[in-house]
Amino acid sequence: MAQLTKSIKTPFDNAVVRRRQMRKLWLAFLLFPAMAILLTFVFLPMASAIWYSVYEWDGLVRGEFIGLGNFQEVLFDPRNNKFLINAFFNNVKVFIALMVFQNGLALILALFLAREPKGYRFYQIAFFLPVILSTVIIGFQWKLFLNPIFGLVNTLLRNVGLGDWAVPWLGLPETALGAMILVNAWHWVGFPTLVFLAAIHRIPKDLIEAARLDGASEWMIARDIIWPLMAPAVTIIVVLTFIGSFNWFEIPYIMGGLEGSPSYSTDMLGLLFYRTAFGSVSAGNSDFGTGSALAVLIFIFIFTFSTIATRYLTSREVELS
């Protein structure tokens, strides 16, 4: 019996086995560069942040192991946690506002473009163009536009007789964050628009036509047919917006500075982390320990919530056909 099995196995099976091994080697070879980059630039820094976060730091010199001491300091020391809470809720505001204004507008634009109105290719490019610009350039450009004295925005407002509206947008705690959110929306709106548009294009035309024959209005078609069927795109955008909102850094850094000027109204977790870990000219000295602890906490928060959100949102997706 044993001999029989053996005789059956060769030589065809050997060739199969060899081919499988080759395939594995080939896969490993192809995966290696990506893995190496991931390891060096993602996992290693993450591991070192966790490593740093459990030590006492005197400026740049590592002191003794203090377990969760840094975390305690970040979360419960009133000197730190009032900044943490303030920054956290600012990030929450950013997320909600971007969901409503940026992604809401993107959805409307996508529905508009999906009907392929005259010149829609031009609009498509026009909406997407800011996305490819560098955030730094956009930050500085809009800082100039919003300048209370020489800026384009207030000059326009004054010229159309809305001089009362020409407030120092970035100088008032009430308007600074809103202005930055709008700048971010202006910068990024093309991206969700494109994703939504692709999702709408994926929906078979027949379904829309069937709904039209069923008597549905354009609004009902959008609500009852297009919206549920673009769920996968919505999942992607919600999760990306969530991650982007809680990692928001460049725009507030360029437009409001490291301390979330004015009066911490534009402070973000990212800015707080940067100040804590690296220090700033006026805000004090670097502390890698609490900085790393803060980074770890931010990571855990984003990771947990985006995982939960992905799970939940994926459950309402429907496969097309």
């Binding site: 209370p148 004295i149 207030n154 120092p168 970035l170 008032l172």
Partner: peptide, 16 residues
Amino acid sequence: MPQGYEGVDYATMKQL
């Protein structure tokens, strides 16, 4: 201070 001084930054100050 200038009108809208809340939003006047260092560069604008020097410019004025």
